[in-house]
């Protein structure tokens, strides 16, 4: 072996391991840094109080509640919509050109930056529909943004359901909807669940699309309707506001820690969904 080839081998091996090590190191630094800085800031009273400058109280309860409300409303709309769209694409649609047109728009939606979603959300939901800056506007914006995630993961999973199952059911005289309801959807539960988890992760981490649609409110509303129709910051938006606009790093670290824990839990759930719900075929 020539000297040059030997060098190439050594160098390539070193670089490959170094890159993998670097990736691990980056993640460790990010998680470690956030937890080390943030964990001391997190305590029960912070998690359960409403922030107030006058009373000098720090708290992140409204942000937690807002995040939950946005996740619930967005998922309540996007989940049926996305799953039905995927079923249509995979089970019902026959026109090839229509299918590829829909798939093209899904790809397009997946590539649009979140700040553009935020901008169009402001134009359509806040202004055109007159909703103003509130959690409903924010949630609706996120419905459009997470739709591709749900459709794609569901579709992926629908495709793995054996064609022979459908043919068998059709042969027994079952109608299409019956097949979808009793056979295809239950069989693709794992994909639907992991799509949900992915979408929730995106919603929890989203800031640019929510900053102007859902606003930056810090109060805890006393009723559900009030909460949805008034401006409210989710955890990610609150983190940005605290750090960038108010220079309140203590609160920022605390929110970052809560977010980080949420991300870790969602990641774990996604893994569980992939292994536990996997059907035997």
């Amino acid at each position: 072996m020539t000297e040059r080839r030997k060098w190439f081998n050594v160098l390539a091996s070193v670089l490959v391991y170094a890159a993998a090590g670097l990736t691990l190191l980056l993640l460790a630094v990010i998680i470690g840094f956030i937890l080390i800085k943030g964990l001391p800031e997190v305590n029960w009273s912070l998690l359960t109080s409403v922030p107030s400058v006058i009373r000098n109280v720090r708290g992140i309860l409204p942000y937690i509640v807002n995040t939950l409300l946005v996740v619930l409303l967005s998922m309540a709309i996007v989940l049926p919509l996305g799953v039905c769209a995927a079923v249509y694409l995979n089970e019902y649609a026959k026109n090839r050109r229509l299918i590829s047109a829909i798939e093209y728009t899904i790809e397009t939606l997946a590539g649009i930056p979140s700040i553009i979603y935020g901008l169009v959300g402001v134009l359509v939901f806040n202004q055109k529909l007159g909703l103003g800056g509130c959690l409903i506007s924010g949630s609706l914006t996120l419905v459009v943004m997470t739709l591709p995630t749900i459709i794609r993961t569901t579709q992926e999973s629908l495709k793995t359901v054996h064609q022979s199952y459908r043919e068998g059911a059709l042969g027994l005289g079952a109608a299409r909807w019956h097949i979808v309801r009793t056979l295809v959807l239950p069989c693709s539960l794992d994909g639907i669940v992991s799509g949900c988890i992915l979408a929730i992760g995106r919603i929890v981490g989203e800031s640019a699309a929510l900053l102007f649609t859902a606003g930056t409110g810090k109060v805890l509303a006393n009723s559900l309707i009030r909460a949805y129709t008034s401006s409210g910051a989710t955890l990610s938006v609150a983190l940005y506001m605290a750090v960038s606009e108010e220079g309140d790093f203590a609160t920022g670290y605390a929110i970052a820690t809560v977010l980080m824990v949420l991300v870790l839990v969602l990641n774990l759930l996604a893994r569980l969904a992939q292994t536990k719900l996997k059907r035997e075929m």
Binding site: F33, G205, L259, N267
Partner: peptide
Amino acid sequence: VGGAVELLAGIPSVIYGLIGMI
């Protein structure tokens, strides 16, 4: 390592921003 890459994808951009800032 694959899990680490997946996690990196899941970290919200505000957290990247925060780390970058600090």
